[in-house]
C-alpha cells in the first residue's frame, strides 16, 4: 500500500483523538496496588503482632517508602511520553537517597558499637528483598498497563521508574509486617529492596512496555 493511501485510511472518519488516561486512573493503579499489597499482608503474611503499640515506627517506615513512590512517579509519567527528558525530576530521588544515607550514618554512629552490626543488618535475612518486589507486583502491573497505552520510547528507563515507584508502594504495605524498626536497617534495606524492584523493572521493561 502506498503511504498516501495508508494516510487516507487512517484519517477517514476518524474524528478526535483518544484521550490520555485521566489522573484517576493513575490513582487507581497506585491505590489498587497498595490495597492488594495490604490484603496480601493481612491474609498471607500477617501483620506484626505489636502493630498497635508500634504505630509510630510503622508510620515512619511507610512514609519513607511512600517518599520513594512520590519521587519516582513523576519520572514514570514523564517517560510514558515520547521525547520528554527526565530533567530535574531525578533530583528528588537523589535527594531522598542522600537523606537516607545521612540518616543511616548518624544512626549507626549513635548506636552502641556492640549493637552496631545488628542495627544495620537486622540480625537475620532481610526479607524485604523478597517481599517488597512481591508486594510491588500488582502496582507494577497497573502502571505497565497505563504506560503501554501511552508511548514510552526509553523502555529500560521507563521500566526502572515503574519498578521503583511500585517498589515504594510495595514497601508501604511491607511496613505493616516488618518487625525491625532500626533507622540504619530501614534506610539501607528498604532502599535496596526498592532498588531491586527498579532493576527488575529495567530488565523486564523492554519486554512488557514494547509497542
Amino acid at each position: 500500500m502506498k503511504t498516501e493511501d495508508l494516510i487516507a485510511l487512517l484519517t477517514r472518519n476518524e474524528g478526535a483523538a483518544e484521550r490520555a488516561p485521566a489522573p484517576w486512573r493513575w490513582a487507581l493503579a497506585i491505590g489498587g496496588g497498595l490495597l492488594i499489597g495490604l490484603v496480601l499482608i493481612v491474609t498471607a503474611i500477617g501483620m506484626r503482632p505489636d502493630i498497635g503499640a508500634a504505630m509510630m515506627p510503622v508510620m515512619a517506615k511507610a512514609a519513607f517508602a511512600a517518599a520513594f513512590a512520590a519521587a519516582t512517579l513523576p519520572i514514570v509519567l514523564r517517560l510514558a511520553r515520547p521525547g520528554r527528558p527526565i530533567g530535574w525530576r531525578i533530583g528528588a530521588l537523589g535527594l531522598l537517597l542522600a537523606v537516607a544515607a545521612i540518616a543511616c550514618v548518624i544512626a549507626l554512629m549513635g548506636a552502641d558499637p556492640a549493637e552496631r552490626m545488628r542495627a544495620w543488618t537486622g540480625g537475620g535475612f532481610p526479607w524485604c528483598l523478597v517481599l517488597v518486589p512481591v508486594l510491588a507486583t500488582p502496582t507494577a502491573a497497573g502502571l505497565i498497563w497505563l504506560v503501554r497505552g501511552l508511548a514510552p520510547t526509553s523502555l529500560t528507563q521507563a521500566g526502572a521508574a515503574i519498578g521503583a515507584a511500585a517498589g515504594g508502594v510495595g514497601a508501604i504495605a511491607y511496613a505493616m509486617y516488618c518487625p525491625i524498626d532500626s533507622v540504619a536497617f530501614v534506610t539501607t534495606w528498604y532502599s535496596l529492596a526498592i532498588g531491586l524492584c527498579a532493576a527488575l523493572g529495567a530488565i523486564f521493561g523492554a519486554r512488557f512496555l514494547r509497542w
Binding site: A17, E18, R19, A20, A80, R81, P82, G83, R84, L150, A151, T153, W211
Partner: peptide, 21 residues
C-alpha cells in the same frame, strides 16, 4: 499515539522520538 503529545513540548521533538524508537 497522538494523544501522547504534550502541548508543552515541540512537536518535532515528539515526532522524532517516535521515529527514533
Amino acid at each position: 499515539k497522538r494523544h501522547t503529545y504534550d502541548a508543552a513540548q515541540p512537536l518535532t521533538a515528539w515526532l522524532y522520538a517516535i521515529a527514533r524508537y
